[in-house]
C-alpha cells in the first residue's frame, strides 16, 4: 500500500537519480550534515500531476540529502498556496510573496525538524506560514509549547507515518464534503486571521450561529475520522 502511494513521477527531475524504492532512510536525526543551499534550479518541462504525490517522501529527500529537485517540486506545489493563504489573510501581493519565499526557505532550513508520523507536509507548512503571518501582519510573537523530547535516535515507525497519511487523506476528503456554509466558516476561522467575534461582525451572523456552525463542522470531521 505504501509503495503504491510512493510513485514519484514529477517531471522536473532532470538529473538522473536512483529509482526511489519507497523506503525512508533511517538516518539518525542529530547526525545530519549542516544545510547548504541548493546550487541551481532545474526547470520543469511538464506540469506534474501533484494529487498523488507523497510529499512526506519528497520532504525527507530535502531533509536527508538536501535534494534540490525535491525542494523545487515542493516549492512549485506549496509556494503558490502559501502565497494565496497570506493574501486571504489580508497581506498584499508584495508582502505575501516575501513571506511565501521566507516560509519556503524556512522549510529548507528546518527540514530536520519535520516528523512524518506527526504531520503531513501541508500541515507542517501551514504552521510555518501561520507563524510567519502572526509575525508579519500582527507583529506579535507566537508562543510555542515546549519541544517534545523523542530521544537522540528517534525515527518514526513506518506504521505511524502511513496512519498519518491516511488520516490526512480522510480529513481532506471530509473537508470537501462539508456543507458550503460550514466549510466557509472553517476557512474564515483559519485564513481570515479573525476571531469568531470578528467573523460575526463581518458576516452579520450572530456569534452563537457561527460557533454552532463551526462546532457542527468539526463534529462532522470527527465523525468522518472515526
Amino acid at each position: 500500500m505504501l509503495t503504491d502511494a510512493l510513485t514519484l513521477d514529477f517531471a522536473d527531475a532532470s538529473p538522473p537519480r536512483p529509482a526511489y524504492t519507497g523506503r525512508v532512510r533511517a538516518a539518525p536525526r542529530r547526525a545530519r550534515p549542516i544545510p547548504t543551499a541548493p546550487i541551481a534550479e532545474t526547470k520543469p518541462t511538464v506540469q506534474p500531476a501533484t494529487d498523488d504525490i507523497d510529499w512526506s517522501a519528497v520532504l525527507l529527500r530535502v531533509r536527508d540529502s538536501r535534494d534540490n529537485a525535491a525542494f523545487a517540486a515542493l516549492f512549485r506545489h506549496f509556494a503558490p498556496r502559501v502565497k494565496a493563504f497570506l493574501m486571504k489573510s489580508g497581506a498584499d501581493a508584495t508582502l505575501a510573496e516575501e513571506c511565501a519565499q521566507d516560509v519556503m526557505a524556512t522549510l529548507w532550513h528546518k527540514a530536520h525538524l519535520y516528523d512524518p508520523a506527526r504531520a503531513s507536509v501541508a500541515t507542517w507548512i501551514f504552521t510555518i506560514a501561520r507563524n510567519r503571518r502572526i509575525d508579519a501582519l500582527r507583529r506579535a510573537r507566537r508562543p510555542e509549547p515546549e519541544d517534545l523530547t523523542w530521544g537522540p535516535d528517534h525515527e518514526p515507525d513506518q506504521a505511524d507515518v502511513l496512519a498519518q497519511r491516511q488520516d490526512s487523506a480522510r480529513l481532506g476528503a471530509a473537508l470537501t464534503q462539508l456543507p458550503p456554509k460550514q466549510r466557509e466558516l472553517i476557512e474564515q476561522a483559519y485564513f481570515g486571521d479573525r476571531t469568531h467575534t470578528e467573523i460575526a461582525a463581518a458576516t452579520g451572523l450572530p456569534l452563537g450561529t457561527i460557533k454552532s456552525r463551526i462546532r457542527l463542522a468539526l463534529d462532522r470531521l470527527r465523525h468522518e475520522l472515526k
Binding site: 503558490p80 500541515t123 480529513l171
Partner: peptide, 13 residues
C-alpha cells in the same frame, strides 16, 4: 491538520 488540509486545497496565487 485541518489548517494543513485547507492550505493544501487552496487555489494557487
Amino acid at each position: 491538520a485541518v489548517g494543513g488540509s485547507l492550505l493544501g486545497a487552496l487555489e494557487t496565487a
